[in-house]
Design a protein around this nucleic acid. Structure first.
Lengths: 261, 261
DNA sequence: CGACAATTCTATCAAAGGTTAAGTTGATAC
DNA sequence: GTATCAACTTAACCTTTGATAGAATTGTCG
């Protein structure tokens, strides 16, 4: 991977439209990161209502989006993997409606909004890619609505595993048929909208059925086809290369590119 | 309402950051609409995978976002009201992951992407408001994930009614405690992720409990407080004026506004 | 007006999943 | 080592919801 020259931002849009970025743009992106930080444990990096003055790129590890209800219970509404610009939407929204929390051990990079503002004024193509990346989150949200309303517990869990499997491989993490996460069954329960007891039951069913094995965060896909079938999983919504993502107007070789956005 | 001078786009961001737009920007916005069309019945205005060359503003009526599964069943993942720029994200995504359908009788306005591109190049502040408006959809998606995973049938239905009630009043549609929609119980079933039979049962419970009455699309809120309590409804995620929406950097009176993207 | 289709309602039964309670396991602290 | 705590597991019981079938209502069209 030639991407190794960009140790902080090399995974941003990887597997999506990253190839639509010029070297110059990749350098600009890498230089946006003012500093990085390693965060341990279940720690909030941004809380609902906070005023956003920088945005956070997840470099290593995982993060979740969570909404707290009036009784203080935290409900997970999204999961982020390395390369995700987890609160880029804070740039346009100024304040978020939800919390962002790291889980396990993670490394993040901070981009001050002044830098973002400057780069977006000069680089309309990059500005558009930033917009694009926030829309990817929305597409994933829509699929989560779909999975939460149309699938039973086993399908929801299978869908989540399939999504994570695809997303991690998209950024060159995880083996062919296994990967590691800091997720517990308590997280899975919140993600899938079922009780922790039922998570345990459902994981047993998936394990006994030879589909997927979850053991303390270590996920092994035993039968990917069966997994996708149980989940009715179609990865199109992830906008991976060769899928819905369209590069026509964004491709660096395209003549009209510079006039774009 | 002074907004009547903008018959097509007067509801865009109304109740949110519309007041952050200058007269000049409002005029520019109104002029983006190339033509309007009245659409009747359950008609698709954009299908998953279509190449987007214009975006659609909903002027009157309602629309839904729907994902079709492999068996052709349509699942509703979002609902749009007048003032919503329903496929503005098609500008950055080029192709959508879902369908957009009008329900009932609706009037829409079309904005060619060349016009959008031109205006966004010259008007960074408007560009940011466009971005903002696509992020509102994402915030609503997150709340739908929350309601679908954390609430039982009666709570989900109450939540949807509460959301629609707030959103319609935000754009000056609907009375104090009632409004009209082209929705059927079949739509409600898809939106809430329950069977149509259970929709009927749940509506009876809400009616008998003196909370809300749904009769062939006519919705009457009998007890708004009870409704919000059953739904655990907190409207913050709608980013209404006085809520999470921040105008500081966007306000026309603010001196730093012009330097702002 | 009557025929027809779509929508809505009711009743019954079965399945999925929540709740409670009582465990086990594994990691870390002392 | 033992204590402790969080994560996980299992079983019993019960509520919520889905499926099926059938009837009633409403709207549309000739």
């Amino acid at each position: 991977m030639a991407e190794h020259i960009y140790p902080l931002t090399g995974r941003f849009l990887q597997g999506r439209l990253r190839h639509a970025m010029e070297e110059r743009e990749r350098r600009l992106l890498e230089d946006l990161i003012e500093r990085t930080e390693v965060i341990q444990g279940e720690t909030a990096i941004l809380r609902r209502g906070d005023f956003c003055e920088y945005s956070t790129l997840l470099i290593e590890g995982m993060a979740i989006r969570a909404i707290c209800d009036d009784e203080g219970r935290r409900h997970i509404v999204g999961v982020q993997v390395p390369g995700d610009f987890v609160d880029l939407h804070g740039f346009a929204l100024k304040r978020l409606d939800h919390d962002l929390c790291v889980i396990g051990r993670a490394r993040v990079g901070y981009v001050p909004h002044e830098r973002l503002r400057a780069v977006m004024a000069d680089e309309p193509h990059l500005a558009r890619l930033f917009w694009f990346s926030t829309l990817l989150d929305a597409a994933i949200h829509r699929e989560w609505i779909m999975k939460s309303t149309q699938l039973r517990a086993i399908g929801r869990m299978a869908h989540f595993f399939a999504e994570l499997w695809y997303r991690l491989r998209m950024v060159d993490l995880g083996q062919e048929s296994s990967f590691q996460t800091p997720l517990t069954q308590i997280h899975l329960a919140s993600i899938c909208g079922i009780s922790t007891i039922h998570v345990s039951r459902t994981l047993r069913d998936l394990r006994d059925g030879g589909v997927v094995d979850f053991q303390r965060g270590q996920i092994t896909i035993s039968d990917g086809d069966k997994l996708k079938s149980i989940a009715r999983f179609d990865p199109a919504y992830l906008y991976s290369e060769g899928g819905l993502a369209v590069e026509n107007a964004l491709d660096i070789d395209s003549p009209e590119r510079l006039s774009d956005l």
